[in-house]
C-alpha cells in the first residue's frame, strides 16, 4: 500500500515538553483522513511538522513516498494547507493575497483565483482588504488559498472553526467534492467527532501527543453501530430470558427500563420479541439503532478505553 503521508516514530519536543511521541500516521491516496483529539492533544503540531514549519525531534516523515528533509521543497508544491488561525497579508485584498500565493507556488493559471473565490462564496468580497474580514470569512479565504493550486494533498487544521451552520455544511460538501472530483487526499483535524464522522474515511485518534488508534470508518461502522434497544418494565425477567433462553451475552443495561443488545448475529429480532412475549415480558418498545461513534471515541479520547 502506498501512502501519501506516512510518519514513523515521529516525535516533537519543544523546550522540554513532549508534544508528540512516536506518532505513526498512515494516510492513503484519495482518502479523507480525520485526526481527532481534544484541545492540546497535538493535532496542530502534526500539521506543522507535515508542512515543514517545525522540524521533528525524532522520527521520519514521508510525503508522496519520499522522505522529508530540511530544505527540500519539492513536495511543498503538491500540498495545500490551512493551519491554525488563517493568516494573510492583512493590508492586501483577498485577491492580491491569492495572486501572491499563486506566484510563490509557481502556479500560473489565474482563472483558478476566481474559481476558488466562487467555491468558498467570497466572489464579491474579493476586492476588500483582508483586514475587514471576519474569522469565518478568513477561514473560507484560507480554504480558497489552500485549494487554489489544486494540490494533491490538502492539510486542513480545524477547518470548521468559526463557521456558522451554513458555512459548516458548505465546508463539508466542498471537502467531499474536492476529494471525489479531483482525487485530493485530505487530512483534517478537529475536536468535533460528529463533523469528522460525517466526512472522513479514516479517523485517527490522538491523545496527549500519542496516536492511539487509526480506524477505517467502514470497519468501525460495522463493528460498533448496530444494536437493538429494548424498553420494558420488567427488566430483570427480560435479562434472564435473554441470557438463559436465547443464550445471549453481549447486552447492556442502560437504565431500569432499557436494554441494549449488541449481539446481532444470533437470534433475529422477531425471535427475541416472540420469546419475550411468550415468557410474559411486556415490551414497551423495540428498535434497531445506529449508534453514533461517540461512546467509542469518547472512551479513546478520555483514556478510559482499552488502548
Amino acid at each position: 500500500m502506498t501512502y501519501v503521508v506516512s510518519t514513523s516514530r515521529l516525535s516533537k519536543n519543544l523546550s522540554g515538553n513532549n508534544i508528540l511521541s512516536d506518532v505513526n500516521l498512515h494516510i492513503k491516496k484519495g482518502e479523507i483522513y480525520g485526526l481527532l483529539g481534544l484541545n492540546g492533544a497535538g493535532k496542530t503540531s502534526v500539521m506543522k511538522l507535515l508542512t515543514g514549519l517545525w522540524k521533528p525531534t525524532e522520527g521520519v516523515i514521508e510525503l508522496f513516498g519520499e522522505r522529508l528533509i530540511t530544505g527540500d521543497c519539492k513536495s511543498k508544491k503538491r500540498i495545500g494547507s490551512l493551519i491554525d488561525y488563517p493568516i494573510f497579508y492583512e493590508k492586501l485584498t483577498a485577491r492580491e493575497n491569492l495572486e501572491l500565493h499563486c506566484a510563490y507556488m509557481g502556479y500560473h493559471d489565474h482563472r483558478s483565483i476566481d474559481e476558488a473565490l466562487a467555491l468558498v462564496g467570497l466572489t464579491v468580497e474579493g476586492a476588500k482588504t483582508v483586514k475587514s474580514y471576519s474569522l469565518g470569512m478568513k477561514q473560507r479565504l484560507g480554504l480558497a488559498r489552500a485549494i487554489l493550486t489544486r494540490p494533491e494533498l490538502l492539510l486542513l487544521d480545524e477547518p470548521i472553526n468559526g463557521l456558522d451552520p451554513v458555512g459548516l455544511k458548505n465546508m463539508r460538501n466542498l471537502i467531499s467534492a474536492l476529494s471525489k472530483e479531483y482525487g485530493m487526499t485530505v487530512f483534517l483535524t478537529s475536536h468535533l467527532l460528529r463533523e469528522l464522522e460525517l466526512i472522513a474515511n479514516t479517523i485517527g485518534v490522538i491523545r496527549e501527543g500519542k496516536l492511539i488508534r487509526e480506524v477505517a470508518m467502514e470497519n468501525i461502522q460495522r463493528d460498533w453501530t448496530e444494536y437493538i434497544e429494548l424498553v420494558t418494565k420488567d427488566v430483570v425477567k427480560a435479562v434472564s430470558i435473554l441470557s438463559n433462553k436465547l443464550e445471549m451475552c453481549n447486552f447492556k443495561l442502560i437504565n431500569e427500563s432499557t436494554i441494549r443488545i449488541y449481539d446481532l448475529s444470533l437470534p433475529q429480532p422477531e425471535k427475541i420479541v416472540r420469546t419475550l412475549i411468550l415468557n410474559g415480558v411486556d415490551i414497551g418498545e423495540i428498535r434497531r439503532k445506529n449508534q453514533t461513534l461517540e461512546d467509542y471515541f469518547l472512551n479513546l479520547l478520555q483514556g478510559s478505553g482499552n488502548t
Binding site: 515543514g52 514549519l53 511543498k76 508544491k77 500540498i79 491554525d84 493568516i87 500565493h101
Partner: peptide
C-alpha cells in the same frame, strides 16, 4: 505577524 507560517510553506527554501 506570523505570515512566515504561510511563506515558509511555499516550495522555496
Amino acid at each position: 505577524n506570523k505570515t512566515t507560517s504561510v511563506l515558509f510553506t511555499y516550495p522555496i527554501r
